[in-house]
C-alpha cells in the first residue's frame, strides 16, 4: 500500500522532538521493530537539527518541510529547508566534519543517517537550500502473534 504525509514547522529547536514523534507515529502503521523506530527517529532528528542549525542558523522565520512516503515496507523521508545550502556536499558528509565546532557539533549527523538507513542522498544549492532524502526497507519477517 502507498501512503504519504507532509508536515511543515518553524525552524525552532523545540520542534525537533515534534518532528521525531510525528514521523514515528505515521510509520507505526507498518509495525516497525523498536530498533527500526529508534533508527528512523534518530535520522529525522539529525536532518531536522541540521536544517535548523546549519540551514537557517537558528532563524525561526525559516520553515522545515518533512515528507514521508510509505510504499509497502519501504519508508522514504525527505527533509527540506530553504536555507543557506552546502558548498561542498562530499566534505559535509565526511565523518567528524563540522562547520560549527564552536557550537560543540560532533560532525556525526550524516554518518549516522547513512548508517541507519539503506540509502541517503543530499541535494543542495548554495544560497537556496538543502534536501536530504533517506530510504529504508523495514524487515518483513516480524513476530506477529505475541
Amino acid at each position: 500500500m502507498k501512503n504519504e504525509m507532509e508536515i511543515q514547522f518553524s525552524a525552532l529547536s523545540q520542534n525537533e522532538s515534534f518532528a521525531r514523534v510525528s514521523v514515528a507515529a505515521f510509520i507505526a502503521q507498518l509495525d516497525p521493530t523498536m530498533d527500526e523506530l529508534t533508527e528512523i527517529k534518530t535520522v529525522v532528528s539529525e536532518a531536522v537539527t541540521n536544517a535548523i542549525i546549519h540551514g537557517y542558523e537558528e532563524n525561526p522565520a525559516g520553515t522545515v518541510t518533512i515528507t514521508v512516503h510509505l510504499d509497502d515496507d519501504v519508508v522514504g523521508i525527505s527533509v527540506r529547508d530553504e536555507g543557506g545550502g552546502i558548498d561542498d556536499v562530499d566534505q559535509a558528509k565526511e565523518p567528524l566534519y563540522t562547520s560549527k565546532p564552536d557550537l560543540e557539533r560532533s560532525g556525526m549527523g550524516f554518518t549516522i543517517m547513512e548508517n541507519f538507513m539503506d540509502e541517503m542522498s543530499v541535494t543542495s544549492v548554495a544560497g537556496r537550500g538543502t534536501t536530504v532524502y533517506v530510504k529504508k526497507q523495514l524487515s518483513k519477517n516480524k513476530v506477529v502473534n505475541h
Partner: peptide, 13 residues
C-alpha cells in the same frame, strides 16, 4: 530514552 549526535557533542565538550 533518546539521544542523537547533539548528545555526543555536548558530552565531548
Amino acid at each position: 530514552t533518546f539521544m542523537d549526535s547533539s548528545g555526543i557533542g555536548v558530552i565531548l565538550g
